[in-house]
Amino acid sequence: MSGEDANIIPLYERHALAFDKLRGRNLFERPWLEHFSALMPRRGHVLDLGCGGAEPMAAFLIKRGFHVTGVDTSKTLTGLARQRFPGMAWYQADMRKFFIPTKFDGILAWHSFFHLNADDQRAMFPRFGAMAGPGAALMFTAGHFEGEAMGEFGGEPLYHASLSRDEYQALLTKNGFEVVAQITQDPVCGGATVWLARNIRR
């Protein structure tokens, strides 16, 4: 990383407890999580990239009977996840480098993937393909428009980036995924721009 995107990892660690406290638990993301879950086998194995403290997203999946492997760069947040759900696997790691020899039934990158710069996002799609088992679901959130945007958390600038809709579509296709559903600024999901795809390679 370089520039403002390089601040993402230390920012989330500096403000980890505040972020966890402020993270909504009302689960307005439920319709998307249910759609994601429906594409996977019962008790499937989900990789949650940017898992935070495991609530509410991973918690929902765990309560549905899925096994979750969570990855987050924050030592504090992965520690919280480990305390809350000790039976699952939690890794303090960078999603751009994380690898274990496992094929997952689902890959989730919710409100985390869009903190990567454009080149790092492009490089993630072959990684998604390599980690996805046959028929695996992939769900991630992107920005609302192509380019970079700055938010704010804890009084510090918070970097976001997005590719174009056409480029996301092309990258998914190139790496063996077909789009199942896509909504830009979903009004019933906090305005999130969501992509849900499925691995069609065998």
Score class of each variant (00 low, 15 high):
101 P>M: 04
162 S>A: 15
105 D>A: 12
162 S>Y: 03
113 F>N: 01
129 G>Y: 10
148 E>S: 01
76 T>I: 03
76 T>K: 08
43 R>M: 11
47 L>F: 00
77 L>T: 08
154 G>C: 08
157 P>K: 11
128 F>C: 07
138 L>E: 05
107 I>V: 15
118 A>L: 05
121 Q>N: 07
44 G>H: 02
72 D>L: 03
144 H>D: 15
153 F>Y: 12
128 F>Y: 05
97 K>Y: 09
130 A>C: 04
132 A>Q: 03
111 H>M: 05
134 P>A: 06
105 D>K: 13
139 M>E: 12
119 D>E: 14
105 D>P: 14
150 M>L: 13
160 H>Y: 11
155 G>Q: 06
161 A>K: 09
51 C>G: 04
133 G>Y: 08
113 F>P: 10
150 M>R: 08
63 K>W: 13
42 R>Y: 06
98 F>V: 08
90 W>K: 12
137 A>L: 06
69 T>S: 13
84 R>A: 13
130 A>F: 07
101 P>A: 06
88 M>T: 02
150 M>W: 00
60 F>H: 08
55 E>P: 00
53 G>D: 15
144 H>P: 09
97 K>Q: 15
142 A>F: 04
54 A>Y: 00
64 R>M: 10
156 E>K: 09
103 K>G: 02
115 H>F: 10
94 D>H: 09
54 A>K: 14
89 A>E: 15
117 N>A: 09
85 F>K: 01
104 F>A: 07
140 F>Y: 10
119 D>P: 09
96 R>C: 02
58 A>V: 09
144 H>K: 08
100 I>S: 05
78 T>G: 06
89 A>S: 15
143 G>N: 13
101 P>V: 01
106 G>F: 13
53 G>K: 11
72 D>Y: 05
